[in-house]
Design a binder for these strands. Structure first.
Lengths: 249, 249
DNA sequence: AATTATTTTGCGGTTTTATGCAGGAAATTG
DNA sequence: CAATTTCCTGCATAAAACCGCAAAATAATT
């Protein structure tokens, strides 16, 4: 097993479980404690994790999920949110995923809007339920803890019964070849169902995520009607998507 | 369990409850008193909390004026929560309502418990989802905004499909004649369904609510198996309930 | 291809850290 | 003020971290 390989496995484990024990790792990969210790040291030096006596902790353990980075992209998300809310009309049924961009949208809803929001995300539903007039429907199922999201066959079955006007997806990766992709199996299943249950699919993404891809495909690009980023609609980066017939806002 | 992990758990608990007892912590995490004491000492040195004889207080206790009022009934709810969690065994399926007493119970769950919690309450589900091992299932439906609760026929239908080991209800009123009653139609419908879907129904209530009633009946008293209050089980106030054959804890 | 340089790894011995335990001091409670 | 609980100090122990070195694996060079 290569050093790089080992370290990426360690990172994977640490981000998955929020912690790792040196002893576990050395047993799992059949290398000496010293090797693991040196790996953790190196990763810690590069700011990939936090080393502690006996093992290591993920960064999110201290700063909360990537605190500083989020504050940085807050403005961008705000711009996206403003563009998104302008698409929502009174009386509409709106299906949404979770994620920080969607939360920003939920906060940007005009107080006099009368619409119905449907979501699997605990955080999003919480936010929607602060709204004075909008109705909110929570889709239930087993909660996927990392993302605070109902995921499972029950949830998917419920979504399938719907046909909403709009579907807003906060996305992790989009790419003209691979379409939308993500790294969480459960989330992908739910998003797939949401896409099928809406007249119009709108993707929200900060420009950093444009032209990247992740292991699991959500859908190919022709299922998407609209793409919202913080950039100007005629930005060069968005050219491939305009050419593919997507409305870029 | 890593030292930092433990300390972060302590901090979490302190900020949640505004206070912690060393004895509770050492029991919950199965380490010696000394370890906890040293942790508290260290955290106190770093200004993360305020150490006092027997435990620690959150900083907001001194800084923020908010705390002291809550502390009074907090203690009662904490006692109730402790009694309630002791009824939960590994592997059980537990149906719960929402409300502050239930939230307190969710926070008091021992970290090593493995159980499945099912609820309609957004707040409760949020709290359960912080637990490292327990599974959490959200029942979905239209959100009743005032109480942040899924309520409606869909939710009731889902609950009807279950047969759980335990049902914990946080209740607003109980009375030997009228049984349990409440003042929110939607909440009552859901609670009714929950009662029918559990082997054992446990009511949690602070003593102030004993012998009071509200407009809408949830169920009559013989549906209840156990009543938990902050009082001693042989308190005079609870006599009528003991006589009615309810296990009073 | 052979050899040299560089990196990576494992091992023995030492130091540090984390934790529990025992006994006495201090604090809290009734 | 007596009894119980909690706190502190020092000590013991086991685990983890560290250090230096040599073997092994990899990469680079001739």
């Amino acid at each position: 097993m290569l050093k790089k390989e080992r370290q990426s496995y360690i990172l994977h484990q640490v981000n998955l479980h929020n912690k790792v024990l040196s002893a576990d790792l050395s047993a799992q990969m059949q290398v000496s404690d010293d090797t693991i210790r040196r790996d953790l040291q190196e990763l810690s030096l590069n700011g990939m994790l936090i080393k502690v006596h006996g093992g290591a902790l993920s960064l999110s353990f201290y700063n909360g999920p990537a605190a500083s980075k989020d504050i940085y992209s807050y403005d961008k998300k705000r711009i996206i949110a403003e563009k998104a809310v302008s698409m929502i009309q009174n009386g509409m049924f709106v299906l949404t995923s979770g994620g920080t961009t969607i939360l920003e949208m939920a906060r940007a809803l005009p107080p006099n809007l009368h619409a119905t929001f449907i979501s699997c995300s605990l955080n999003a539903v919480m936010e929607y339920s602060n709204h004075p007039h909008c109705d909110v429907i929570m889709i239930g199922d087993k909660i996927s803890k990392s993302s605070r999201f109902s995921a499972g066959p029950e949830a998917i079955a419920r979504i399938r019964q719907l046909k909403c006007d709009l579907c807003f997806l906060g996305i992790n990766s989009i790419d003209a070849v691979h379409g939308i992709s993500d790294n969480d199996w459960d989330v992908v299943q739910v998003k797939k169902a949401m896409i099928e249950s809406a007249q119009k699919v709108v993707c929200l993404s900060i420009s950093e995520k444009i032209n990247t891809h992740q292991p699991i495909q959500v859908c190919c690009i022709d299922k998407i009607h609209t793409l919202i980023t913080e950039l100007s609609p005629d930005d060069q980066l968005l050219r491939p998507y305009r050419d593919a017939g997507i409305e870029v806002v």
